[in-house]
């Protein structure tokens, strides 16, 4: 493991720059959560507009599959973080690859859910926009998942030996934090939709 002094995270200036970056990621998470918060309140305002509004269907089972898949991916990402801490780069690579696959699986599962919705007659282009909102929520979330998969791929292809251990751990912590956020965000969306179905 390369512990070149200029990459040493214990250097106070670098430590504070890292702290600032982690903080910036939190701020980004807040900003992106605001999108979903505003969609939720938009949904509530819209649905309160009339008794013919509302989801009015049973949500597809595929959403449960998605939930299981994304929770599993969160676990593998966390294990990848643990492996990074211990410097087990092979194990880390396998776990990250697994996480990316699970992320793609989540993608597929969500697409499948959309198909089920279409079969049920709950189209995106719909005079009951409460149903359109399901697509908007999941679509916005998928855009984030897409970004998350790119983040995981960056972590996967990161040339570990070019950086110090502490830098690698730090980098992996940020990636994991973002991925866990996507996981929690999905659970929020799913619970929100379930409560309104």
């Amino acid at each position: 493991m390369n512990t070149h002094p200029e990459n040493n995270i214990e250097d106070p200036a670098r430590a504070s720059a890292f702290k600032a970056k982690r903080f910036a990621l939190w701020l980004f998470i807040i900003a992106s959560f605001m999108i979903f918060a505003s969609l939720s309140s938009g949904f509530i305002v819209y649905t309160a507009g009339g008794i013919d509004k509302g989801i009015k269907i049973i949500l597809p089972k595929a959403f449960i599959t998605s939930t299981v898949v994304i929770i599993a991916s969160s676990i593998t990402v966390h294990m990848a973080l643990l492996a990074t801490r211990k410097g087990e780069s092979m194990k880390r690579k396998i776990l990250l690859a697994l996480s990316v696959l699970l992320g793609l699986g989540f993608f597929a599962s969500q697409f499948h859910a959309w198909q089920v919705l279409v079969e049920q007659g709950a189209f995106f282009i719909n005079n009951n926009a409460s149903q359109s909102f399901i697509y908007v929520f999941t679509g916005f979330h998928l855009v984030h998942i897409f970004a998350g998969i790119i983040v995981l791929l960056f972590a996967f292809f990161r040339p570990l030996n070019k950086y110090s251990l502490s830098q690698n751990v730090y980098n992996m912590e940020l990636s994991a934090m973002f991925w866990h956020f996507l996981d929690i965000l999905w659970i929020y969306i799913y619970v929100f939709l379930l409560l309104n179905q």
Binding site: G42, I125, S132, V136
Partner: peptide, 23 residues
């Protein structure tokens, strides 16, 4: 930071109404 993302939602929904035929 708290308010601009809300405009994103508003604008995206407007975009769907304009281009995709949602309501």
């Amino acid at each position: 930071l708290l308010s601009f993302p809300v405009l994103v939602s508003a604008v995206v929904l407007l975009f769907f109404d304009r281009s995709m035929g949602t309501s």
